[in-house]
Structures are given as C-alpha cells and as structure tokens.
Design a protein around this nucleic acid. Sequence first.
DNA 1: ATGGCCCATTTAATGGGA
Length: 257
Amino acid sequence: MRFATWNVNSVKARLPRLLDWLAGTAPDVVCLQETKVADDGFPSAEVAELGYETAAYGQGRWNGVAVLSRIGLDDVRRGFTGVPGYPEPEARAVSARCGGIRFMSVYVPNGRTPDDPHYAYKLQWLAALREALIPDLKAGPLVVAGDYNVAPADADVWDITLFANSTHVTPPERAALAAIREIGLTDVPARALKGDHPFTYWDYRAGMFHQNKGMRIDLVYGSADVAERVTDAYVDREARKGKGPSDHAPIVVDLTD
DNA sequence: ATGGCCCATTTAATGGGA
C-alpha cells in the first residue's frame, strides 16, 4: 500500500497538478489539507476518473481537509469528538477507513504568534485531538497525517535562531505533539530526496525553496502496527518545483501488504 | 537546476498563511 499527505493550498488552484501527481505517484490513499473549498465544490468527479473516492470536509475560503482512496473508503468522520472552535468548529480534520487502516487528515491551527488567542486555540486543538485519538487507536490501525504546523525539533527549520518569539517551535507546541505520540503513535520519518533535511514547506517568497530554507511541519503519525510495515517514506520535493506549486511538498509512504 | 508570494473573496484590497 502507498499513501501520502499533502497540503495543496487550494485544491481548485492545484487541480491540474494534483491530477498529474496522482497519476504519476499512484498513491492508494491521500490525505489533503487546505483544500479551501466547500464540499459541493470539491473536484470529486475529477479524482474519481483516476479511481479515487473522496471524503471531503470543507468550509469554503479557509481550511478544508479530505481523504482520497482507491482501495475503499467508509466510516467517514468529520472533525473529532470534543474539537474546539474559533469560536465555531472549523474543517481541520476528517477521517475514513481505507484498506483496513483509519486515515485521518489533519490541518492543525497555525497559532499566528505566541501571544495571539489563536495560539491558545492551537494548543487546545492538539490536546483535544490527543483525547479523541485514544479510542481510535484501540479500534485498529491508524494513520494521522497532515500539516501539524509544528516543527518537532530545532533541525526541522532552516535556521532556529530566526524563530525567537515565533510559533511552530515553542516548547508547549512540541510537548503537545509528544503527548500525542505518547498514546501510541509513532513519527514515521520521511527521507529528503536532496540535502540533509526532509523539509516539507518552503515560503513562496525570496527564493526560499531553491535555497532550501524550509520547515518540516507536515508529519505522518502511525500506530505501531502501521509503523512496522513502513518500507519507505520520502518528501516529494519534485512536486514543489515549477509553475504554480503549493508551498508544501507531499510525503509519500510505502507499506508492505 | 528548483528561481525570488499566493490563495479566496466582497474583483480591490484584505485576511491568512508560517
């Protein structure tokens, strides 16, 4: 089985690239984030032509997540139990069972700045996610993949000295991720196709990508029974190149059957 | 080579992204 996660930064703006990438990479399951489209606008028919069923949870202008699968898709859940809002619940998590594994696509709140209410919301959201995943882990194999908006270690940003007073690297954010791992999820490390750092995000501005000034903020967390099946995982930086890319690259994971 | 913001929306200017 091959699965992937990708923050596409608008599924409509990215549709030609998404379809090409699906055809070329041939993942069985894909977790998408920042689809930025209401469910009735999701290009379900277009991805169906490539054999994918869709579980989309969107709200329009912002956020939006989806799971695509060509190996079956059922038991779809939008959001999760106890999800906090800002102030209303946002479309930041959707899950479905595909090929014997529950896949959850997550788009963690950004946090903006550490003194912003959005930062407190981010920590609340991650704490609530942890609690919601406990019963999911008991129910069977689980993958929680997406844009976590946290760089787990200093090496996961291009220059940690530039992140003083910034979100994504603070101890409480990192502790929130550690608390999620502690319930029985493993960080599936992805290899970089070039260089030493498997960054998944590079700002559009100032040539950050070609200088490889990036961040590792997209992550794949898997239950132990999934993690032990991993044969390869890589960041597809090719998808960040060229005209009209997302600012995030996909992570592709291969499992033994 | 990978190339110097981009997205959606209230279609101009703004909020959000990280």
